[in-house]
Nucleic acid binder design. Structure first.
Lengths: 157, 157
DNA sequence: GCGGGTGTACTCGGATACAGGCTGTCCGAGTCTGGGCGG
DNA sequence: CCGCCCAGACTCGGACAGCCTGTATCCGAGTACACCCGC
């Protein structure tokens, strides 16, 4: 169970986009900041666009920008955009194939094991939804104020 | 991010092993209960043995049994045994390759993004650790008492 | 000098290869059982 | 009748293929800019 590496890239890039105001930043420059493969980061950004987290512009002076205020973007939004909406644990209803189960029945909501695993994932999602990109931005601004200007300059060049 | 299917199999099998007392049940019979591939389930059971959750016996009348009381086995233990101890989100310290980072430094404990993701995973793990195999066993006993005897008989045959 | 048209370069977006891990299978080592044999 | 020995079968354990998702890349469609030409 390994999370898509794009989640980390997407989160870092979203926070970075907070510092450049409303100007669009191309994937190439976002990738250069962390020395990431530009085309692959572009693929991840596309997922964020489809999820309505970013908006994209083509052509010269184009690129990506935040589609809404950072206060309205949670970590949960970003994770879901990259990983998809499905839970990590998926009840395959093996009970349906057992002597004590009913064939063809969906046990995702009734099997105690599935319910316990779902409860844990909900706790995880709740925690992710409680933090926003703005929270991260503020922590960086408070903890490393000297970096902010440098990031903005690097992404603008 | 999809969890190993063996986790579901292992959890079901652990609960089932609660009903047979201290007798060993071979992987072949555990697998037959859910019509699972026997050799592959055996592979997952091996992981539980390595984690000290089950004990195994070779030869006729051999098989797997719980290595300790179900009250002492949490869902977290089983998940860790199958999936490994690593977190789903792994900080790759991309900050170290950025203009504002220190090359070679490990940012797993200082990067705000990594910290936020870890906090969510801890909530998930805490929830998993709060439920034991005994809890699941009791819920089944309370909710489906007529199934218990049937399971025990099926696994003994 | 000014406006319009065109060419160019830039960027996103999706289609296309490559790799690693999960899924599934097979065979060998070890062990317990059960029956046969000898005392 | 009892105890020992041996053959057989059973089970775990690790080594070996196949597939599917994540990783990485490339090329085409669309667009905005900048330059050039004509008025």
């Amino acid at each position: 169970m390994k999370m898509n590496e794009g989640v980390e890239w997407a989160l870092h890039s979203c926070v970075n986009l907070c510092w450049v105001g409303d100007t669009a930043v191309p994937a190439k420059r976002l990738a250069a900041f962390y020395e990431l493969p530009p085309a692959y980061l572009n693929k991840q950004m596309q997922a964020l666009v489809r999820a309505g987290i970013l908006s994209s512009t083509s052509g010269p002076r184009g690129g990506f920008r935040l589609a809404r205020r950072p206060e309205r973007i949670t970590l949960m939004d970003v994770v879901t955009a990259i990983e998809g909406p499905e839970d990590a644990f998926r009840c395959s209803s093996i009970l349906a194939d057992s002597p004590v189960g009913e064939s063809g029945h969906d046990y995702a909501g009734s099997c105690f094991i599935s319910m316990a695993m779902s409860k844990a994932e909900i706790a995880w999602r709740r925690e992710l939804a409680a933090t926003t990109i703005a929270d991260l931005r503020d922590r960086v601004a408070k903890g490393f104020p000297e970096s902010v200007e440098k990031i903005a300059r690097e992404l603008a060049s």
